[in-house]
Design a protein around this nucleic acid. Structure first.
Lengths: 201, 201
DNA sequence: CCATAATGCGAATATTTAGTCGCATTCAAT
DNA sequence: ATTGAATGCGACTAAATATTCGCATTATGG
């Protein structure tokens, strides 16, 4: 960011640029999110845009950070309820929340998440992983299963990535032949089994 | 494709363009795979490129199709061995194969797969899903578990997408804190449990 | 060997895009 | 009210890039 926005008008200008960038990426993809288009959508001149952002990519990064904050908050809130819920319900509810989050605002965040490879989404997922690994480790310690859980970090790695990508892929799917509820149920089952917390045996 | 390449020299020209495109995407990303660069790498003029491809995107699509063929063959070969192996070993071996495939040739295919959202990779995954669903349905029919498998299509959907995306993500990860073997083992376990084929209980 | 179709070329054109710069406008402190 | 700093503007520049077109070269069938 070139200059720090000091006055209030410039701060809201920066915000409107970030919003406009998010909308543009969501509606027309990353490639279409050019400096000119973002500025126009924000009702701002390109000159002003470059007053606060070094480059086009810096705006994209700002958008990611915005999404990341939302995701982190959501996961954090759910983790607080893990002890009372147990793994299965926890995963189920978390999945519902993530799903709704990605679908909100006309799938604004979804479209952005699809371009994870080109954006710095990897950092975000690393953060989520750590958060989840800690929480699950603590939970398993307090609810020791008959058989100890092996490779817990690997399992969390799988779960976090699988959930996020599969949901993104599902929402992107024009004609999925399975239902959202089936996916969520299956994921919850898989998670519970992986943590050896499956009571139905 | 504008013209059909009839003579042998033009056919190999087309092939060299596709190869060059794959290499360019792999090494420098999708955005860098411009018409000029692809042509240069193939040792061909841009004019010739546009003689056989309507647009830059059409080359990208051709590259995808090439990868898809490889993946399909690989999965097909593994599915043949499913009956003798059982779910767990099947998934484990399949994962090793997919992993090696994506890492081969200096991760040539990996980089391409990372851009699935912008390319037509969705079709590929639909195909793989159908292939796997059929195979697993047949297997489960011949090896009925104590409890019937619910939501089989959904579970296969999860498995296929999770495996592919998680592997891609893992190979992209500059500093993963879990090992490849842990991931594979955990996935194999998850698959076996999901199909109620877990004998270790 | 000739006629004709297929192939190959790359300079030239048209478009798109990132990023800059000098000038105009607004704010905030005195 | 005045003044200097902050903000905002958008035409302009420079660089990439997609795609075309007329001409040169090469293969093929007779």
């Amino acid at each position: 960011m070139r200059k720090k926005p000091k006055q209030q008008r410039s701060q809201s200008l920066v915000q409107s640029l970030i919003d406009a960038a998010a909308e543009t990426i969501a509606e027309h993809g990353l490639a279409a999110a050019t400096a000119a288009r973002i500025a126009e959508r924000a009702g701002v001149s390109v000159g002003s845009l470059y007053q606060y952002f070094e480059s086009k990519e810096q705006i994209h990064t700002a958008v990611i950070e915005h999404i990341a904050t939302g995701l982190r908050a959501l996961v954090h809130a759910q983790i607080e309820q893990l002890p009372q819920k147990g793994i299965r319900d926890f995963v189920q509810d978390l999945l519902h929340e993530v799903w709704n989050f990605l679908e909100a605002d006309d799938q604004r965040y979804l479209q952005i998440t699809r371009h994870w490879a080109q954006l710095d989404f990897v950092q975000v997922m690393n953060g989520l992983e750590r958060q989840m690994t800690m929480a699950l480790a603590v939970y398993v310690m307090h609810h020791p299963p008959r058989q100890p859980v092996e490779d817990l970090p690997a399992k969390v790695y799988i779960l976090v990535n699988s959930v996020l990508f599969t949901v993104v892929r599902y929402i992107s799917d024009p004609a999925p032949h399975v239902t959202r509820e089936q996916i969520i149920r299956s994921f919850a089952q898989a998670a519970a089994q992986l943590m050896n917390q499956d009571e139905s045996r």
